[in-house]
Design a protein around this nucleic acid. Sequence first.
DNA 1: GTTATATTACGTTACGTATCGTAACGTTAA
DNA 2: TTAACGTTACGATACGTAACGTAATATAAC
Lengths: 197, 197
Amino acid sequence: MPRQASSSPAPRGRPRDPRTRAAILTAARALLERGGLTSVTIEAIAQKAEVSRPTIYRYWPNAPAVAMAAFLEATGASDAVKSPRAPLAALRAQLHALADAFTAPTGRSVAAMVAAAQSETELAKAFRNEFIARNRDATRALLERCVADKSIAAPDDIELSLDLIFGPLFYRLLMGHAPITHGFVDRLIDAVILTRG
Amino acid sequence: MPRQASSSPAPRGRPRDPRTRAAILTAARALLERGGLTSVTIEAIAQKAEVSRPTIYRYWPNAPAVAMAAFLEATGASDAVKSPRAPLAALRAQLHALADAFTAPTGRSVAAMVAAAQSETELAKAFRNEFIARNRDATRALLERCVADKSIAAPDDIELSLDLIFGPLFYRLLMGHAPITHGFVDRLIDAVILTRG
DNA sequence: GTTATATTACGTTACGTATCGTAACGTTAA
DNA sequence: TTAACGTTACGATACGTAACGTAATATAAC
């Protein structure tokens, strides 16, 4: 039987210790939540993770990249809401949870990664294709269930609907001109439902 | 006649050369539009403006602060749209102009300042109280004229209306998942009008 | 009025520090 | 033998500040 020519490219040499990667990401995550993006330096990560600096560079090209990886791995863990509820209630619950996350310390991390994504294209792609897409996908799915359920009318443009919901949420998170309450979220949902956006 | 005890606190010593300040801001603005926030370093500004580094520190505490000042002075110059038009048309025109600015190189500067505002409270306040407030004030005024004009129904919450318009605009600017077209702006306006947000 | 003197704006130079990214070399695990 | 790590070291960049000299303007003394 020939070698598996696909997923396993015949690993040779000493394998990477998975604890190394985990330690780096954990340290980066902790630094990010406390001091924001500016405190996530390679040196600080190395010290906190008890790993040498060159090792970190063997995994990622720079500090913001580590921060982004840590952020995405941390937020990606959250499973989709198992909802025995009605889809519209599930939609509300899902967005309330996001609002709570934005209000919690996690919110500052989200804002920090939005900021980081502005200076490097690679980070922007990663953030958009993972964090942003995840949220949009989850909400889109629930919106479609609502439509199928006839609990709301079919929107003209579901992508616009998503922008109408997420846009103001991020806007308040980033500008801080007004709080992100459940009531605020409910009004956003109402706006989308009424306008058939 | 006694001294004016108010606005002029009797300036003594050598007055600041206004060209110095102007040169610094101009240089910072140019650097910002090209290389983004990371290329706005005190050293680069000093060289481009032909000013010494210590002088820059006499005006501002750090590089992002200079960038913010340059940005706010540049964008603040735009006068309110003189509109002999109907208020609703003026509203569309105003937001189309903003969309154009977001699409142009200026948009990258806006995004950069949003990012900068995430790490320093002072910058956040300045950005929110000047740039964000300016845009909201202008749009709020036009919305109120529309209501007075009876060209649209009175929104339940005009601040929410502003969030529904600006939120998605900034969202697309920062995430880059979809283009910022005039059609997009028109749909945002429609959403606000229909929902009485 | 003219001349000191204080005060401030600026340039020049220099310093110590932080963080960067990389290179060289030895050690350890497969 | 190969690659993952640690250790150490290096040059580079930018930081923020300090010290000093000079230029420009006010106020006060004569």
